[in-house]
């Protein structure tokens, strides 16, 4: 009989999931009386982080090829600004969303070309991309924009759609039944997550990504088109970031130069906590999803507590990052010992 062996990577994913569960139960134990035990709190974490889920999924794809994309946060700011300004100019919500996604594709294609075909370090290319997108946002407008019902009723409606779930509600003090709800952004984010998961697992492109991350040379010898696959990874990342930007915009209904500042690092830390290695070849969007949830839970706990300083979430995220990196390096050391 074949024994299922749990390898280091699966174990790491299990640790991530367990940590999230423990943390969430801890949150419920401490702040259950303040509504933390409600399903809606969890759904709100999803709602706030819908954009981040899309971005982090794209980033995971890039990280699988041993690359990095630090332009995602700035690209979100640029996309939101384009959305807001376009709608202010009277263009409809649907054409604007298509434009934003097209811009994402072009942006990704340029970055992907520079990384894949010109072999420039991904960090430098996407750093320039970040500068470019953030600066472009300022070129378009330096105002604080907000999207109201007058500017675009359709977009406003889309942002306020609440899809009610048939379970997990509660009755509030006035005796009204409150059904838990999710926003359109959450649906998009979960769809993206499932599609990317399936893509990584069952398509040729998905498996090429793992192969390239494992060893670029071997992948090339196997006959994979390394350059084009890498380029496609960056296109996918920017494409998903643009979808994420729409989710983000639906949640905030605003645009400014300073928007989504540091989001790239949130996305990277989510992926790393979720077990994706920056050296490439190892990782999974499910892990990344839980990474985002862990970050979101930390923020939610700090927010519910209300007394903790605003700097705690990032310190805790960093501490977790430290923990996971150390665990990863221990696993790597064990694997090396087993090999030789």
């Amino acid at each position: 009989m074949k024994k299922t062996k749990i390898n280091g990577n699966t174990l790491l994913l299990l640790i991530t999931i367990a940590l999230f569960v423990v943390m969430y139960i801890g949150g419920i134990a401490a702040y259950g009386s303040r509504g933390f035990s409600r399903l809606q709190t969890f759904l709100d974490i999803l709602k706030t982080n819908a954009g981040l889920i899309c971005m982090a999924s794209g980033l995971t794809v890039v990280m699988l090829t041993a690359g990095i994309d630090i332009s995602v946060g700035a690209l979100v700011a640029m996309d939101c600004m384009i959305l807001a300004c376009g709608m202010e100019a009277g263009i409809g919500a649907v054409p604007m969303m298509i434009i934003v996604i097209l811009i994402g594709l072009v942006f990704g294609a340029v970055q992907g070309f520079l990384v894949g075909y010109l072999e420039i370090q991904p960090f430098i290319v996407t750093m320039a991309g970040m500068f470019f997108a953030r600066g472009m946002t300022a070129v378009i407008s330096t105002d604080q924009k907000s999207i109201t019902e007058q500017i675009n009723p359709l977009f406003y409606k889309l942002a306020n759609i609440k899809i009610k779930l048939p379970f997990g509600g509660y009755t509030n003090r006035k005796g009204v039944y409150m059904a838990p709800n999710i926003s359109v952004g959450v649906v998009i984010a979960l769809l993206v997550l499932i599609l990317i998961f399936l893509m990584l697992r069952y398509t040729k492109f998905g498996r090429s990504l793992y192969a390239i991350g494992g060893s670029e040379q071997s992948a090339a010898m196997m006959g994979l088109n390394v350059k084009f696959t890498k380029m496609k990874a960056y296109i996918l990342s920017s494409f998903l970031t643009s979808i994420g930007a729409i989710c983000f915009c639906l949640n905030t209904m605003a645009a400014s130069v300073q928007q989504a500042l540091g989001y790239e690092m949130d996305a990277i830390s989510s992926a790393v906590i979720g077990g994706t290695l920056l050296t490439g070849g190892v990782g999974n969007v499910i892990g990344t999803f839980f990474g985002v949830l862990i970050n979101g839970t930390i923020s939610a706990i700090v927010k519910t507590n209300g007394k903790l300083a605003s700097s705690w979430p990032s310190i805790l995220t960093a501490a977790l990052l430290f923990l996971f990196i150390v665990i990863q390096s221990i696993f790597a050391a064990i694997r090396e010992k087993q090999k030789g």
Partner: peptide, 13 residues
């Protein structure tokens, strides 16, 4: 990346 995330926040603290 760890200190990139944490150092600024520790400074605030």
């Amino acid at each position: 990346l760890i200190l990139f995330t944490a150092a600024r926040s520790i400074g605030l603290l």
